[in-house]
């Protein structure tokens, strides 16, 4: 119940203040021996404090690459060729490497899919968190340890004093993810980017982690970018949603509008193809075909070949964003208007 109310205030809040993070026209190219592929194509995003932006898309849609590019964490063969990433009105892509490193651990933090590989197996959980605090925040080791214990408690790890001295293999998947979140929020970041934070976890644990993230978001007044392939998770946790397909954002809307009235045929297709635990359907409405790999990306609408609403105008030119009201937009020549 309280969630829904929070949600309303967030939306109001968002309209008033400038966004904490604004991405404009971000494009990323990957160089491969077969040529360069533009895996992220002019992506615009924004997120405000206290708000959760859900970034949803299938594998290869460019959602993770977008976030890595924002933090300048792309692997060597990926490079940003266009765009700006304004964080508190400062372009991250123009910062020096030192400033960026400072910012990354502190004001912007990240949580990854697999907590087990993100933790160093030969160091205790407590050491890993307090060491990063000690380094980033210039506080003494004792203070760092105190803060770490607070954090472990905050993310709901029972008996933090004992767990502090345990190693990652002694933590279950859910507990490791809590520890990763503790590490990420220890510096009280303004922005938390969570890349498939619950994909490796069981559903009952997933529900706990999602609840924790949304709790922390409002307690610490953070902005949260939640990357996921799961529309259920989006419906559960996001305020704003950006749907990505084949390197582009195809639809952006507040979460209620998106699920009530999806306007891009891809969003609609995705929703229709989901089996649901709360109702029985005779047959799933699958979208035929599969998403194109980056070397088959075209300039025109990339969903055209799987789309039931397309005509000649969809080929060749990139569909521009159409603003629908004040809060949502869709990149489609023939957006679906009836609900």
């Amino acid at each position: 119940m309280s969630n829904t109310q929070n949600h309303g205030t967030n939306a109001d809040h968002m309209a008033a203040s400038p966004p904490l993070l604004e991405v404009r026209g971000l494009s990323v190219v990957f160089d491969t021996p077969e040529g360069s592929h533009q895996v992220v194509d002019h992506v615009d995003l924004k997120v405000s404090s206290g708000q959760t932006l859900g970034l949803v898309g299938e594998s290869g849609s460019g959602k993770s690459v977008t976030c890595l590019a924002m933090l300048r964490l792309l692997a060597a063969r990926g490079r940003v060729i266009n765009g700006e990433v304004l964080f508190q009105e400062q372009d991250l892509l123009k910062l020096s490497e030192d400033d960026m490193t400072q910012l990354r651990g502190c004001k912007i933090a990240m949580v990854f899919q697999d907590p087990m590989v993100s933790l160093n197996p030969v160091r205790t959980i407590g050491w890993q968190i307090s060491e990063s605090l000690h380094l980033h925040q210039n506080i003494s080791r004792e203070a760092a340890k105190r803060r770490t214990l607070e954090m472990l408690d905050l993310v709901g790890i029972p008996e933090p004093k004992t767990r502090y001295n345990e190693y990652p293999h002694q933590f279950s998947g859910g507990m490791s993810q809590r520890a990763m979140i503790a590490m990420a929020i220890a510096c009280e970041p303004k922005l938390l980017i969570a890349d498939e934070p619950t994909t490796a976890l069981d559903v009952t644990i997933q529900a706990q982690i999602l609840e924790l993230l949304s709790q922390l978001k409002s307690d610490l007044d953070m902005a949260l970018i939640l990357i996921t392939h799961d529309l259920g998770v989006i419906a559960e946790a996001a305020d704003e949603v950006a749907v990505m397909y084949a390197g582009r954002v195809v639809e952006e809307a507040p979460v209620f509008d998106l699920f009530d009235n999806p306007m891009h045929p891809y969003t609609l297709g995705l929703l229709n193809s989901l089996p649901r635990v709360d109702r029985k359907v005779d047959r799933l409405n699958a979208i035929e075909g599969s998403a194109p790999p980056p070397h088959e990306f075209v300039e025109g609408c990339r969903f055209e070949q799987r789309c039931g609403h397309c005509d000649d105008s969809c080929t060749g030119t990139r569909p521009d964003f159409k603003n629908i009201g004040t809060s949502r937009r869709v990149a489609c020549m023939h957006p679906i208007t009836t609900s």
Partner: peptide, 25 residues
Amino acid sequence: KALISAVPVPDPRARASRTTITGEP
């Protein structure tokens, strides 16, 4: 019951009906 309740449903209006269980297997 807990398992069914934990499955995220692609409908933001279903959020309120969630009951999460604590602990781990």
